[in-house]
Design a protein around this nucleic acid. Sequence first.
DNA 1: TGTACATCAGTGAACGCGCGTTCACTGATGTAC
DNA 2: TGTACATCAGTGAACGCGCGTTCACTGATGTAC
Lengths: 198, 198
Amino acid sequence: MLAALQLVEGGQHFSSLSIREITRQTGVVPTSFYRHFRDMDDLGLALVDELSMILRQLMREVRESQANAAKPEQLIRHSVDFFMQQVDANRGIFVFLTQELTGGSVAVRQAIRSELNFFTNELVLDINRYRILPDLSREMLEAAALLVIQIVSMAIVEWLDTAQTLASQRETIRQRIVRQTQLTFLGASHWKEKEKTV
Amino acid sequence: MLAALQLVEGGQHFSSLSIREITRQTGVVPTSFYRHFRDMDDLGLALVDELSMILRQLMREVRESQANAAKPEQLIRHSVDFFMQQVDANRGIFVFLTQELTGGSVAVRQAIRSELNFFTNELVLDINRYRILPDLSREMLEAAALLVIQIVSMAIVEWLDTAQTLASQRETIRQRIVRQTQLTFLGASHWKEKEKTV
DNA sequence: TGTACATCAGTGAACGCGCGTTCACTGATGTAC
DNA sequence: TGTACATCAGTGAACGCGCGTTCACTGATGTAC
């Protein structure tokens, strides 16, 4: 699994990897692959499972790092900074997950989407816990929370394409995430159910 | 190029297609491929170029279809309905473009992103033309417009995975796009530059 | 109007190669009695 | 404590196959004079 991540991080698409390539990277004979996975699809699903665990732990750390933040108005920016640091430290994971969000088999795509929904629910819980948007309907709250998750997801792709040395471009991306997130919360706080029936 | 789109629409990832597969689909001998493209990367870039043209035409139609809409509050919903209809009518195009948004070579990814930026600018022009958000700074306006484009982009992936027969699930996606877009505009209309320095 | 040549998409044989997958195997580690 | 067996990751040879790419070719269409 680590070998697959390394190859994906090296610029190849997961769907174009071969079993022999992966076992070569591991330093093991091709037939050994079958001791662990039925085929590449099986490996893909196992990777999503494994990486989901890691990602959840990582998100927990992001939330804890902000649990008793001094200045609430900087909470968004600090969370974004912390999270993007984690993205850099785990490139392979995020390259794979963003690739497969649009690329893999139907099963893999849906597994990743359900993971995004999990984070959406976590975010909804946090928003309720701190009574940030007390008047919002459940449906709208979920749409807003998912939007925040999606803002970050889309930005990760561009972030991974932007070398760490291009500080100003990275700052542009960071700023956009913060702005778009603030926009979402601001919109949500002004939402009146009756005005805007969908 | 059409053959490649058909294969991608059939569930394969573009990066896993072979030259022989494509020429087989076209009904032509493998060597003919080289009369038109240097390699698969070349074909990928040519596809993005070609599909960008089609997509721009398609977006023009969406905008024209709403140019003299009777009820401005339903403008978002009608545009979304019209656009999603186009997505269904051109599955191959959108499967390819969403795949390559996260998956292809760096060059292809950036070509698609620059296309999204083009649509963002178009949207900014429209917003200015109708004086919808007159007090917003250029930067914030762009962040909001890009957010709307991103909302639709992310939804397309899920939309393409949801069979046309699953009407209720499709309605959920459609509703979410509308809600998230309304949220974005609502947030943008309440934005005060001084309060929220990033 | 007719001839000579250039252009160009497609042909078909051939190449060496890496691929997925099978099979019977080895040898280390864990478990039962 | 010692022996017998089960489990399990890795081995290495072998297979048939589809792959990308090369080459010299054909035959239709367009262009110059």
